[in-house]
């Protein structure tokens, strides 16, 4: 993919593009927050709690987007053996897990005033909870080997297997949820978004994405350097040994 699989080229690209992503993040999230909190209407039904949506929904998108990036990068790493793809997958996991965590907690904080309970086995929240455990499994596996290379290979397979299972899990949780839908929970569902709310939501969504990209580039750069440090150390040991 236009030479990015070559670590040195990737480092140059990351140094070049990184600052622009950072700038975009500040502008997007700044304006998104300003409009979302101060310059957009409250919901006629939910009142001010709807403002939680500007954090809850983008983090849900990012949780799923980061997992897809992880799975695609893992597939590339498995098929074409590009170490940079492994680094992208390894770097993307903690970010995705962080966003999924934000999504779950803000979901609970939004659910309490609206549905009356901190945790509701709503289909989307439950699927995000399972996604969070898929992230934990991935990170635990990638860190469970002494040899980083071996960890990357094993977790790459897990990411692809996990990604294949996500639609099945989503389908079964939705089916399970409609079956056991407790009558008391009024399914508020996604409020039909009027433009005044859509703008801050999209601003925050894109802002979260550029934030994710900035941090991902940093993490990939540090993974590349870590690999080089390991190689130099090995060379030194063999050199002197």
């Amino acid at each position: 993919m236009f030479g990015l699989q070559n670590p040195t080229k990737f480092l140059k690209f990351a140094k070049l593009v990184g600052p622009w992503f950072a700038l975009a993040t500040v502008l997007l999230i700044g304006s998104g927050l300003w409009i979302g909190l101060f310059a957009s209407p409250a919901d006629y039904q939910q009142g001010e709690t709807v403002r939680i949506m500007y954090v809850h929904v983008p983090s849900a998108w990012m949780g799923m987007f980061a997992y897809t990036v992880m799975a695609v990068a893992s597939a590339i790493a498995l098929v074409w053996k590009h170490p940079v793809a492994d680094h992208v997958a390894k770097g993307s996991a903690p970010l995705g897990a962080g966003f999924t965590l934000i999504c779950l907690v803000t979901g609970a904080l939004w659910g309490k005033p609206m549905w009356g309970a901190w945790w509701v086995w709503d289909a989307r929240l439950t699927s995000m909870l399972i996604l969070f455990f898929l992230y934990l499994g991935y990170m635990a596996l990638s860190g469970a080997f002494d040899n980083a290379e071996r960890g990357a290979k094993a977790s790459a397979i897990l990411a692809v297997v996990g990604w294949v299972n996500v639609p099945i899990i989503k389908f079964s949780v939705d089916w399970w949820n409609t079956l056991h839908q407790p009558a008391s929970v009024t399914k508020a569902g996604m409020p039909s978004i009027d433009p005044a709310m859509l703008i801050p939501l999209l601003l925050m969504g894109v802002g979260f994405t550029t934030f994710y990209a900035t941090l991902l580039l940093w993490r990939v750069r540090s993974e590349i350097l870590q690999t080089r440090i390991r190689n130099i150390r090995l060379a030194q040991i063999h050199g002197e040994g």
């Binding site: 399972i130 898929l134 596996l141 469970a144 397979i157 297997v161 079964s172």
Partner: peptide, 30 residues
């Protein structure tokens, strides 16, 4: 799949449960 993935990993037994339990959920549900 989980058993094969954790070969050579530290604390493989516990790790398997973290890997496969989420994937078991559809089977459990249906």
């Amino acid at each position: 799949v989980g058993a094969a993935l954790v070969l050579g990993a530290r604390r493989g037994g516990v790790l398997i449960s973290l890997l496969v339990l989420p994937l078991f959920i559809p089977v459990l549900i249906f």
